[in-house]
């Protein structure tokens, strides 16, 4: 390995570290601090007064609406998977989680975390940020983060793939949500692209759900590079973008709801006969059985 390869390899380090250093933009010069200390102290005093002043106004009836709360998403890399910790109501709804993340949803302790840039990192020592099981359905699909009394849902996003050549069976995605058989699936339906509204029939018929589970588990996984080669190789460069857009336009978003109410999604591209799962970052050639199933049931 050459030194340039080594430098290139450093590009692949944990994104949380990169974000941490990205935010670290202020100069740490200490020489001039003493000079500005009185002014800083005055500013600090003013800042400390803000909550007091705002409370005075609130108590006078100036503002009585709901608290804005934290509307942010934090990343978490845990157990070979990438998660996003959020309390954004729209996001929680999409994954079948309650909008009010109360302490009652927190189950057994899983790990301790430390803040790291735009997210969290697992900690070997005890901290005041805890990763806990999601009590209604302990599985790897969702965890609860207790960040000093503020609760977030850490929602599974995807497995970490070691390379562009790697792929994962769809059954592994099912396992993340505790699904080991069709009986763990409550329903299958189609939603809009943004995953907000259902637009197809809600399939709850046991035989149809069983078929869906069996068919999808038997799909052959393809890596991203394998998929790109099969679908887009040979397309002239000037037509590449057009073809990518046409492929994206063929998207049918399929929502799978587990028996415990969690929801996750896979994407079907019927005209191109492909399935994509963002959880596995893998593509699957859609079998005729799956295409017929979708046509009949959704």
């Amino acid at each position: 390995m050459s030194s340039l390869d080594m430098l290139d390899l450093i590009g692949g380090i944990d994104t949380a570290y990169i974000s941490e250093s990205f935010k670290e933009t202020t100069s740490r010069k200490t020489i001039s601090v003493q000079r500005w200390l009185p002014a800083l102290a005055a500013c600090a005093a003013l800042i400390m007064m803000i909550p007091v002043i705002s409370n005075i106004f609130r108590n006078k009836g100036g503002y009585d609406g709901p608290s804005d709360g934290l509307k942010e998403i934090k990343s978490l890399e845990f157990n070979g998977c990438y998660y996003e910790a959020t309390d954004v109501p729209e996001a929680l709804t999409r994954y079948g989680l309650p909008q009010d993340l109360s302490p009652e949803l927190a189950g057994e302790h899983v790990s301790y975390l430390v803040p790291n840039g735009a997210g969290y990192l697992e900690s070997a020592v005890k901290t005041d940020i805890e990763l806990l099981n999601y009590k209604p359905c302990p599985c790897r699909g969702v965890y609860i983060v207790n960040d000093q009394g503020h609760y977030y849902a850490a929602v599974f996003c995807n497995f970490f793939l070691m390379s562009d050549e790697a792929s994962i069976d769809l059954s592994e995605l099912y396992r993340i949500y505790g699904i080991t058989g069709a009986e763990s699936i409550l329903s299958v339906t189609e939603t809009d692209w943004h995953r907000n509204n259902t637009k197809g029939k809600l399939v709850t018929d046991r035989a149809a759900v069983e078929d869906f589970y069996q068919i999808t588990c038997s799909l052959e996984p393809n890596s991203n590079s394998g998929f790109q080669a099969k679908v887009f190789d040979g397309v002239p460069e000037e037509e590449q973008q057009k073809k990518h857009i046409a492929f994206a336009d063929d998207l049918h978003m399929i929502r799978i709801e587990t028996a415990s109410g969690l929801m996750f999604y896979i994407e079907l591209y019927p005209n191109y006969e492909w399935v994509y799962a963002s959880g596995t970052l893998s593509y699957y050639p859609a079998s005729q059985k799956l295409l017929s199933w979708a046509k009949e049931n959704l």
Partner: peptide
């Protein structure tokens, strides 16, 4: 080309920077 399948919502700059 890479989005999708990637969805770097919370790490877009590190993703692009890489």
């Amino acid at each position: 080309r890479l989005i999708p399948p990637n969805e770097p919502r919370s790490y877009l700059f590190p993703f692009l920077g890489r």
